[in-house]
């Protein structure tokens, strides 16, 4: 092999190997965490946003395709499963508090599924978004893997739903605390539950930074919202004649 052939063989390997996607994601995250700490935890510099910007920029500059990237990215994506299951542990620790609030929790949960889907579809329709976008927006408040499942069932664009759900998560994490203080809700249990219902896992990550109580209630909101939305949303959309 000539020197140039060797170089292009190496480049092919870099594009195809899962090592690239994994190390790119990990390095982007480490860099993002460093910035986040340096900025004294400014919400706009949340590690998720920075990591995404870094990864997308690197892919665009190098021309590595999303499929090639995901060959490695899927290993990190995989961790979302066990991490979701592990929410059972903070939930267990908060069980005595949750039992006390059972009735408000059920009322708020059911209302939130309707408020979330109807406000999203309503605003998107008003703004002239296409039907495909409206449907893909409907499950935006549930955790990404569940949002993908629901989107598939109701005929949305699956990967668009995943991205919009993640964006909703990060958005809630960034503006959540401000909205709560604006409406004057200070209790960590209520703030946490509202955060989880709206912004699932990424909101829960922010909630845990505030307090364990807020994190556990956010995890509860996320788990309950996923279940309830998965059952109600397909029915609601066909009732509204959207699908």
């Amino acid at each position: 092999m000539t020197f140039n052939e060797k170089l292009s063989a190496i480049w092919l390997m870099i594009q195809g190997s899962p090592l690239t996607g994994i190390s790119l994601t990990l390095l982007a995250y480490v860099f993002a965490m460093y910035l986040y700490k340096k900025s004294n935890y400014k919400p706009i510099l949340s590690p998720f946003i920075t990591s995404m910007v870094v990864v997308v920029s690197v892919l665009l500059i190098t021309g590595i395709s999303y499929q090639d990237y995901f060959a490695g990215g899927k290993f990190i994506h995989f961790l979302l499963g066990p991490a979701t299951v592990s929410l059972a542990i903070p939930l267990y620790h908060q069980l005595h508090r949750i039992k006390k609030l059972l009735v408000p929790i059920i009322i708020t949960l059911l209302a939130s599924v309707f408020i979330g889907a109807l406000s999203a579809i309503g605003i998107a329709d008003l703004m002239g978004a296409s039907i495909a976008t409206q449907i893909s927006l409907a499950p935006k408040s549930v955790t990404t893997p569940v949002a993908m499942g629901i989107s598939e069932q109701i005929g949305g664009i699956v990967s668009l739903s995943a991205g919009l759900a993640a964006t909703t998560g990060v958005l809630g994490g960034v503006i959540g605390l401000k909205v709560f203080s604006l409406v004057g809700v200070k209790d960590d249990r209520y703030r946490g539950f509202a955060m989880g219902l709206t912004s699932h896992g990424l909101g829960t990550a922010v909630a845990f930074k505030e307090s364990n109580t807020m994190g556990a209630f956010s995890g509860l909101g996320m788990a309950l919202a996923s279940f309830t939305t998965a059952f109600i949303l397909p029915w609601l959309l066909s009732f509204l004649d959207i699908i």
Binding site: L101, V103, P104, I105, I107, T108, A111, S112, I115, G116, S119, A120, I123, A124, M127, G128, A129, S130, T133, L137, K140, S141, L164, T167, T168, L171, G172, I175, G176, V179, F180, L182, V183, V185, D187, R189, Y190, R191, F193, A194, M195, L197, T198, S199, G221
Partner: peptide, 28 residues
């Protein structure tokens, strides 16, 4: 559709955060 999507995400997220937090607070 960036404008429609951005406004929907921000609007719907604020509505949900505020309404669910208040609902929890009042119901409790």
């Amino acid at each position: 559709e960036w404008l429609a999507i951005t406004i929907t995400l921000i609007g719907s997220t604020v509505i949900m955060l505020a309404s669910t937090a208040l609902m929890m607070s009042f119901a409790s």
